[in-house]
Amino acid sequence: MPTIVSVDDSTVPGEGSSRLLLLVSSDNKHIVVEEDIMSRSRFISKQVEGFEATSQRHAILLPFSSFVLNKVIEYCSHYRGYYLLEDDPDAAPPGRSPVREWDQEFLDVDRNMLLRIIKAAHYLEIKSLVGSCARAIADMIRGKTTEEMREILGVENDFTPEEEHSPSSKCTG
């Protein structure tokens, strides 16, 4: 879990229209980012609300690396000020859309990175990014066999042999 530490007022200027936030990654990199870029993250927004209540601004410690954090910031910067159908990504019209195409390109990363991004997005409560990552991961395993799915995502089979041959898993979908 992240902890919140006080920082010097000089590090995070609290005046002006575009206030800055200090984010600290798990590899202890300090990243300064404009507050409204990160407003897509419900987690950050809630933190900021907390600052307003106590009139003290803090650094926000995050449990993932600066590599992942920068990627998330890139995403948030791209969609800065845009309304996304993030509450219901499935409601977006199927097929090609500029959002989906940009996201596909953006998420064209290796499997581990993709999984790290989706976890970070989930932690930060950025629904639209979770949705896009989920779609990208689903695309990777669609049409694959169980064994292929395990291989693609590196999941270990923890069923007992009896369970695996249990007929109860057979059902008509």
Partner: peptide
């Protein structure tokens, strides 16, 4: 929550059936 989010993008029952046996 993430896993469910991923799985719900697999619309075909056959794909969902394959995921059933991946792990507990």
């Amino acid at each position: 929550e993430i896993l469910i989010n991923i799985l719900k993008h697999l619309h075909a029952p056959r794909d969902i059936h394959s995921t059933l046996l991946v792990s507990r």
